[in-house]
Amino acid sequence: MTALLEAEGLARHYQVRKGSRLFSRPATLRAVDGVSFTLQPGRTLGLVGESGCGKTTTAKLVLGLLPLSAGEIRLQGETLPKAGSTRWRELRRTMQMVYQDPLAALDRRIAVGRQVMEPLAIHTIGTPAERRDKALAILESVGLQAHHFARYPHELSGGQRQRIVLARALILSPRLLVCDEPISALDVSIQAQVVNLLLALQAKMGLAYLFISHDLRMVRQVSHEVAVMYLGRIVEQGDPDRLFAAPAHPYTRALVSAIPVATRKGRQRLILKGDPPNPIDVPSGCAFHERCPIAVARCRAETPLLRPMADGRHVACHLAA
């Protein structure tokens, strides 16, 4: 089976100045620095990490919303051509994005039905009547009704708006949805509705998801595989159940132990000291060593590479066994 999406050595670097002065030394900010993963059709890869770790930048690189500084993206075995070219536009139809804030992702002055149909108009698919029929069918599949077609975004609830954003992404029958914090802006009782809808759509349409979230519990709920990012790199990747039950990388361990749970049966909390370092000033060796409770001299000198463990997961830590 050909993988749906292959990302190899993705990198996005920015040239910035250290400090705010005009003649400050130029520096390189490595927002994403060598990220690789493979996504099979109908599967979900969860991408977790704290703000600034490069989750969203990775998503934008995959979709061609940002140019790559290095690396390659293959869609069904075909290398993605330059963004904006005719072939790229054809391929791009198969991947769509769902954003965090549905109100910001929708145009407030256009009825939501027209917004759902718009991708069909852009790609000149079907007659206006066919587009309308298709939009109504998609609305129904995301749990909305025909009378929602003529509504405006402000007339809908947060959960309904996110369903509209989903409908708009689905109308071109994509194979891959990139979901960037799709439920973070929703209330707790609505989050479960949207997550269940995403799972049902995946089962029905065979969609693959790149699911970005800081909510580890939700990521475990939806993912077949999960990748933990820290300062632009993947530090641990593998099966979500095993990864969250027994994290191998000390950063994953801290992230998992930071989640407040109702019943903590004598589980020890690992509290990290300090903030993540400035991405312009990434420490030498392992980027995590300054906050790591088990760092040794080697961690300061040598950058650990992602390597396979006995149980099939991949970990970038010198001390993981």
């Binding site: 479960a192 509705q193 269940n196």
Partner: peptide
């Protein structure tokens, strides 16, 4: 409606 981090995954009841 809240998922858990450990144990078997169960469908969320929204």
């Amino acid at each position: 409606a809240l998922p858990e981090l450990e144990g078997p995954r169960r469908p969320l009841v929204a």
